[in-house]
């Protein structure tokens, strides 16, 4: 894959080569749109509508009492991990020229992301309030 650096301030859509790269490019835009609601919304909830000084176990227990906030958090988890992993994949491609090192770091990235996805999902599903 070759990314084209131009002074347009963004990656150009890959116009040749595999359709995977085009879908990945497109996915960054679609997931970005959804993350505006999810990630920016999450930040506003934590910082503007509440204050993190009031954040405690009960606060989270109350939020996760409804399946809707669990679903919201899970979508946030899945999309930000996928979006970030694909973003980093491109960054690694751009900056590591040695094939072996690049393959190793890409594998490390995928394993890490998968691990954190499993951990985050487990936390959301398994949480039962103790208070």
């Amino acid at each position: 894959m070759k990314t084209q650096r131009t002074d347009w301030g963004r990656r150009q859509p890959p116009l040749a080569g595999s359709s995977f790269e085009l879908y990945a490019w497109f996915f960054m835009r679609v997931s970005g749109l959804l993350l505006v609601l999810l990630a920016v919304g999450h930040m506003f909830i934590m910082h503007v509508f509440n204050d993190t000084l009031n954040l405690d176990y009960e606060f989270v227990a109350a939020r996760w009492d409804t399946p809707y906030w669990r679903a919201f958090d899970w979508l946030l988890l899945a999309l930000s991990l996928l979006h970030g992993t694909n973003g980093l994949r491109v960054v690694l491609h751009d900056n590591i020229s040695d094939t072996t090192v690049r393959k190793l770091s890409l594998s490390a990235l995928y394993v890490t992301s998968l691990g954190f996805f499993v951990l985050g999902t487990y936390v959301i599903v398994a949480f039962v309030s103790k208070v």
């Binding site: 009960e58 954190f116 951990l119 985050g120 936390v123 398994a126 949480f127």
Partner: peptide, 11 residues
């Protein structure tokens, strides 16, 4: 994600 996971260990 790690610091949120600590919630499973109790208040």
């Amino acid at each position: 994600i790690i610091s949120t996971a600590l919630i499973l260990l109790g208040p």
